[in-house]
Simulated scan of single mutants.
Amino acid sequence: MDIDVVYLLCLGLCLCYGGEEENEELPRPSISAWPSSVVKCKSNVTLRCWTHFQNVTVTLGKLHNSGYQQELRSAGKEAEFHLTNLQPEDAGGYFCAYRTATSHRWSGQSQHLQLVVTDGVGGGGGDPPRPSNSKLIFLATFSCLCISLLFVSIFFIYRRTQQVTLNDHVCKYEHEAGWGE
Rank of each mutant, 00 (worst) to 15 (best):
V116F: 10
S37F: 08
F53L: 00
N65E: 15
P29Q: 10
G67A: 11
R99L: 00
G126R: 02
T102H: 11
P35V: 07
A101W: 06
V45C: 03
T141G: 06
C144F: 10
H64V: 01
A33R: 06
R99V: 02
T102S: 12
Q54I: 04
F142K: 09
E24V: 06
Y68C: 01
K135T: 08
S32W: 07
P88F: 14
K42Y: 14
Q111R: 09
I137R: 09
P88H: 14
T118R: 00
A79H: 12
S148N: 07
H104R: 12
E24Q: 13
K62D: 07
P35K: 07
D90Q: 09
L26W: 00
S148R: 07
F142M: 10
E80A: 14
V38G: 02
H112T: 10
I31Y: 07
V121I: 15
E71Q: 15
G123W: 12
K135H: 11
D119A: 06
S148K: 10
I147A: 12
T118V: 06
G125C: 04
S107N: 12
Q114M: 13
A140E: 01
H64Q: 08
C49F: 06
R48I: 11
E71R: 15
S37I: 00
G76M: 05
C96L: 05
R105N: 10
T57M: 09
L72F: 05
P88A: 14
L115K: 10
G108W: 07
S132C: 09
S110N: 04
F142G: 02
L136G: 04
P131R: 09
W34C: 03
R99T: 01
F156A: 02
F155R: 04
S107T: 13
L113E: 04
G125A: 04
Q109H: 11
N133F: 05
L149S: 01
R73S: 14
K62Y: 01
T59E: 14
V152E: 04
A91V: 00
K42P: 03
A33H: 00
L115V: 11
F81S: 13
N55I: 03
P27M: 00
E25A: 09
L47T: 00
R73E: 14
K42T: 13
T57N: 00
S74Q: 14
Q87G: 06
R105T: 12
D119R: 10
Q69L: 09
V117E: 05
E71V: 15
G108T: 04
N65G: 08
L60S: 02
H104Q: 07
H104S: 13
F156R: 14
S32G: 03
P131V: 13
S30H: 08
L115S: 08
S110Q: 07
Q87C: 07
Q109A: 10
A79D: 09
L145V: 09
